[in-house]
Structures are given as structure tokens and as C-alpha cells.
């Protein structure tokens, strides 16, 4: 079975480490915050200038001056800091964020990512995505393996305008955990009950399949 959005978030959360500063994008990446393992401390960075993003406020503590990068009202955790947008992107571009998780339309075997622009459709802008992918060493892309029409999103070359070039090494789809190195995808894990054949069929770019591909495990 393909992973649900929650299972995808749960699998990404297995990559968290104690003491990590983490930037989570909108959508599935946001859900990762719900699966931080017990006893582990991570600090969430929100690119509008908040390190240490907390839960949503209550109606009583709602504050127009406390929002996240998705423009939702939030709170700050104990030990948080707040700063300007320039400081926020200094952290991001400077490689100080330990893990970045974001969505995408397409990823290719060269580690290119396309996530912000579909030609001939209205373009709303890249926000902070280009800075995030250019600055981070440790990025996980979350997306469905194929479009609703069954077209692969793991390509030999991205067809859409790029968000970043040669910056992606890890992709979690609803079917597989895939790593990118030296111009090829490697199948590292598969979703429980999903066959290697299905993944091969839905991967357009060159995919290396090791002899044994373990199933993902969830606690």
C-alpha cells in the first residue's frame, strides 16, 4: 500500500536527531512536527524569523504578531528566538539548519528540484524555497511518486523550471525512500506491501535496485 500523508511524515521523522534545528515546508513536511520521537528535542525554524516554533495558540493567546511562514498564527516554545528576515535567511543560506523538508513537483537524477512554477499557469512566487534548497546540506523532499495521471515525478531531467540545481540527495515518496548520487536514483526502502516492480515502473529516471530492498518499518 502507498503511504498515507501521516505515514510519510512519520517516516521523515525517523531522520530527526536530538538537537536538530529543522525547517519544515508547507503540506506533508508540516506534519513531521507531530511525529517527533518522545524524549527528543528539535527546534523548528520558520523563515519569517522564528526559531523555536510551537503549537497553534488557543483562542485566548491568539496574537496577530505571532505567525509562521505559512501565515498561520503560532506560539513560540521556551528557548525560542525571533529575528529579522535577513537573519533568518543567513541561518538558512549559511547552512546552519540541520534538516530541511519540503515538497516538490519533480526531482531528477542530477538532484535538481522543480517546485514553484508551472509554465502557462499563474505563478505566485518561490517564497523562500530557492534559498532553502541552495543553503541546506541535508534536505528531504516529500512528494507522491507519480502524478494522478500516473506520470512519474522522478525523472531523468526535470521538465519544469527549477527551484534549485544539484541540491537534492534524499526523496521520500508515498512508495519509496530514494537517494540520489552520481546521476542516478537508488531505491533504499519501499513502502510496506509495495513491490519493487511498481516502483521501477513509476520511476522515469535511472533507478538502481539493490538485491534486497527492505520495507519501511513504523513503530
Amino acid at each position: 500500500m502507498a503511504l498515507t500523508r501521516e505515514q510519510m511524515a512519520q517516516r521523515v521523522a525517523q531522520e530527526l536527531r536530538d538537537g536538530y534545528y529543522v525547517n519544515l515546508g508547507i503540506g506533508i513536511p508540516t506534519l513531521v512536527a507531530n511525529f517527533v520521537p518522545q524524549g527528543m528535542e528539535v527546534m523548528l525554524q520558520s523563515e519569517n524569523g522564528l526559531l523555536g516554533m510551537g503549537a497553534f495558540p488557543t483562542q485566548e493567546t491568539l496574537d496577530a504578531d505571532m505567525i509562521n511562514a505559512g501565515k498561520q498564527t503560532v506560539t513560540a516554545v521556551k528557548g525560542a528566538s525571533i529575528f529579522s528576515s535577513a537573519e533568518s535567511f543567513a541561518m538558512i543560506r549559511g547552512g546552519h539548519v540541520d534538516l530541511t523538508v519540503l515538497g516538490a513537483f519533480e526531482v531528477d537524477v542530477h538532484g535538481n528540484i522543480a517546485s514553484w512554477m508551472i509554465p502557462n499557469k499563474l505563478v505566485k512566487g518561490m517564497g523562500g524555497a530557492m534559498d532553502l534548497v541552495a543553503g541546506a546540506d541535508n534536505i528531504i523532499v516529500t512528494m507522491t511518486h507519480a502524478s494522478k495521471n500516473g506520470e512519474s515525478k522522478l525523472l531523468a531531467d526535470c521538465s519544469l523550471p527549477l527551484t534549485g540545481k544539484g541540491c537534492i540527495k534524499k526523496v521520500l515518496t508515498d512508495l519509496a525512500w530514494i537517494e540520489i548520487d552520481e546521476g542516478q536514483f537508488t531505491l533504499v526502502e519501499r513502502a510496506p506491501g509495495v513491490s519493487v516492480e511498481e516502483i521501477v515502473e513509476k520511476t522515469a529516471g535511472k533507478l538502481v535496485v539493490p538485491e534486497h530492498v527492505p520495507e519501511m518499518t513504523f513503530a
Partner: peptide, 29 residues
Amino acid sequence: PQGTLAEKMRAGGAGIPAFYTATGVGTPV
């Protein structure tokens, strides 16, 4: 890009006419 926009303002105010960034390399930007 958001970080580039922030830095453009910061640099503008700080008397720095231009700067190099990895953000946007290989993209329409």
C-alpha cells in the same frame, strides 16, 4: 527569492551594491 529579497534590502541599506548568492543558480531567477 525571499532570502535574496531580504539581503537586497540589507545590502542596499549597508552601502553594498551587489552580492553573490547560491540562491537561484540554474533557475529562471
